[in-house]
Design a protein around this nucleic acid. Structure first.
Lengths: 341, 341
DNA sequence: CCTCTTGACGAAACCGATTTCATGCGCTTC
DNA sequence: GAAGCGCATGAAATCGGTTTCGTCAAGAGG
């Protein structure tokens, strides 16, 4: 690894001039040429660590997500990456496992590594952005909000919950249960809130056991579905508030031999890589990649120096019903929500 | 962000002593106490950029994978991360999209960011590790091999291909086709080689169209499957050489209404998050996470200074057959391959 | 008591860039 | 022709740690 000094010596100029050439500052044509030639000859690449130490910032943004094995978050990551690449930024992916301690560690790394900014799906409401904020590093919250005054991009979760639940009622199901995420996670809370509203309006009374809280993953969906099948009276459909729990729920239905028609399933989220989408499944597709792109764009704006007041962009999901409706009277306004640009 | 100088001033010692305290070098008990107190009071964290500039290395390893949306690679990433975390290292994930240019760019970043090492699923045989190697940065190849003398961890792909194909013959299928990855990608080439061997031994003659090359993803699997359904005579089963192509193939089968029994499918890889595993599907589960852990362990050894000659660890997949066999005469030795520790 | 070793510790060099500051040259302007 | 200005350029400071080197004091050995 050649240094700027060696290039300077070979080109017969000062190190400062070499730096200027590489940063687009005015340098005479003659010297620019000599510097470039010398740099090529020595295959010189500026040392980013040194540059970062001096500039107190780098062209790296961090993306903190709770679960890298969840396709929703990997799609989001793709969106972030695509946008960041366009602007010449690199993305560092960090897995928090929804663990506030891990999250905090990564946030400290962000600070001490002089990263340019953070896109964060907060593990909890308790996330401490104080340190990052006081350093002037921009933060964008995705999928979840924080008490701090930072930019955010989220899904209209309540509308998604409403759309999913309404779809089931419209198909003809009547005893619609819900598998929610862990209590306290905003995104799924809001989705189950949507469920609650629709159910309250369209169902005479809802047994207590119809709302099941579960962990976010496949096994959580399985456990919750088993509990639901034991509820009295047994539900005839279920809304799951995320993608992986839906997989678990469908697995249990398959194992117990309940036919898809017999039991409706609506998912807030996308069934990942589903080889077969069973009948009577409604999905509210979430624009995960777009969420990531948008978050990255907002972060880049801040990095670029924008000082406008923090905003939150809300994107909407898009309902897709695979099962032909039993009742033809669909509420068009909820049936399909246009994707926002 | 407090610096070492402020801590030194507050503790009444020199900066060098503060550095020594934080690096475990011998310092008197009294001063150690004072430094720690001062550091806590100022909530001092060593600046990694400065440290890295001086030490010419960091505690970050890079992981270059071709597709972050493929569950095989995210599972692999989890394995790498788990192991790295244990050793106090952070992992930077980079998406190469199987694009040699992107890969090269990331490798340059690895160098100029002074990362400690790289775990790489090479985009092609052409990958140029010369620059990295000459810097003395250790490299571990995962899933694929390289012409360079570096450590590697891979799957016994030929055995996996053989196991998957044999399983289909054992169930009773006779016209077994194969969906391979893009020509030139070692992993899937080897798997289809396994297919070819078994087919050659157990099938009278194999029509040309039975080997389809496709891109790695779901749409590739769909296209290949459609082509296969048009082949004469029509195959009655297929081996797919990766997980996503299997999803595509199953989708096409579902769309065309061919019953699962009628057409057997064997996957080298794991059907991701499958809500329903259709009958007559055999999977050769690949120990992706373990692959990642092993690669990380090997890399950490090298970072620790090991100079033993490069080795390649080969892990084996584990066959799981969902469909009950039609023919009871199973070849036990190929039927189930024990997972290696 | 004097020399030698050992170990803690501070001063200063160092990693490789960026950036400030000062200089000197060439032009314009009165 | 003198003063003023802009501009390219080099010397040197700077970012915040780590590490070398030299000093000094305490304890060991003769």
């Amino acid at each position: 690894m050649a240094t700027i000094y060696e290039v300077a010596a070979l080109a017969g100029v000062s190190p400062a001039t070499v730096s200027r050439v590489f940063n687009g500052l005015p340098v005479s044509e003659e010297k620019t040429r000599r510097v470039r030639a010398a740099a090529t000859k020595l295959s010189f690449t500026p040392n980013k660590t040194a540059r970062r130490l001096r500039k107190q910032s780098s062209e790296i943004v961090a993306l903190l997500i709770p679960d890298i094995e969840n396709p929703f978050f990997t799609a989001l990551a793709r969106g972030v990456e695509d946008r960041a690449q366009e602007a010449g930024f690199s993305v560092v992916l960090c897995n928090t496992d929804d663990d506030p301690a891990k999250e905090l560690r990564y946030l400290q790394i962000v600070a001490s590594e002089h990263m340019a900014g953070v896109i964060l799906a907060p593990a909890s409401d308790e996330v401490d952005l104080g340190a990052i904020a006081s350093l002037g590093r921009p933060v964008v919250a995705v999928d979840r909000t924080t008490p701090y005054p930072v930019d955010g991009v989220k899904i209209d979760n309540r509308a998604a919950g409403i759309a999913a639940t309404t779809a089931l009622f419209d198909i003809g199901y009547r005893r619609v249960a819900c598998i929610a995420g862990p209590a306290g996670i905003e995104a799924t809370e809001e989705r189950s809130l949507g469920w609650r509203e629709v159910v309250a309006a369209r169902s005479p009374q809802v047994p207590d056991g119809y709302l099941q809280h579960a962990n976010f993953r496949v096994d959580g969906g399985r456990a919750a579905m088993r509990a639901l099948l034991g509820a009295q009276p047994r539900p005839d459909a279920v809304v799951t508030t995320n993608n992986l729990m839906a997989v678990g729920a469908l697995q249990v239905l398959g194992d117990t031999g309940i036919s898809p028609r017999e039991f409706g399933v609506a998912v807030v989220g996308d069934l990942p890589f589903a080889p077969f989408i069973p009948a009577a499944v409604a999905q509210v597709h979430l624009p995960a990649r777009h969420l990531g792109r948008t978050a990255a764009s907002m972060l880049l704006e801040r990095i670029g120096g924008s000082t406008q007041p923090p905003r939150t962009v809300v994107l909407r999901g898009e309902l897709e019903v695979v099962a032909p409706p039993v009742a033809p009277s669909l509420d068009a306004s909820l049936q399909s929500v246009p994707r926002q640009n």
